[in-house]
């Protein structure tokens, strides 16, 4: 099944976007760190119009990655650029990029925060971005301040809103 998926990805340039959109499952993988970081899972999972997702945990920790839709549209990732740990990032600032066949696609922070960890597994295995973008393919773990970020969080899409945005 996986190999079939990857063949499809390589040809994504010729596949109508609507098809990709209908195929996308953009919900968080419940078996991986971005979900399991808290015992009860994240308090919220939000999405951006630039196709990033962020899982927000109650202790002020968050995970960032790109959506299934974005990963499928990009095709096979060949390199994932990640930020330095400890870096303070402004809202909307670029924190890395995903390179697929000759395309560098920027990834932005939907909230302000401090980078705590990056997913070093992506250095060896950038294809995790394609295989499990909302789980094993998470990119950045960061700390955010709930009070300061409230407005920014409210401005992000819920899963339903994001899926609706994709269909528009």
């Amino acid at each position: 099944m996986l190999s079939t998926g990857r063949v499809l990805l390589r040809q994504s340039a010729t596949i109508p976007r609507l098809f990709l959109r209908a195929q996308s499952t953009n919900s968080l993988n419940k078996l991986e760190l971005p979900f399991k970081y808290s015992n009860s899972g994240p308090s919220q999972v939000k999405y951006t119009k630039d196709h990033e997702w962020v899982s927000l945990h109650e202790d002020g920790t968050a995970f960032l990655g790109i959506t299934k839709y974005a990963a499928d549209a990009l095709g096979d990732a060949t390199y994932v650029e990640l930020p330095e740990t400890g870096r303070e990032v402004e809202v909307e600032e670029s924190v890395g990029s995903v390179e697929s066949v000759k395309s560098a696609s920027e990834v932005y922070m939907p909230l302000a925060g401090t980078v705590k960890e990056v997913n070093t597994a992506l250095e060896e295995s950038p294809q995790l971005i394609n295989e499990d973008p909302l789980g094993k393919g998470w990119m950045v773990q960061f700390e955010y301040e709930l009070e300061k970020s409230k407005a920014a969080i409210d401005g992000l899409y819920t899963l339903e809103q994001y899926e609706k945005f994709l269909k528009e």
Partner: peptide, 11 residues
């Protein structure tokens, strides 16, 4: 040869 960039809804 070709190269591409994608950012903020544009490419």
């Amino acid at each position: 040869g070709s190269a591409f960039k994608i950012a903020r809804g544009k490419s």
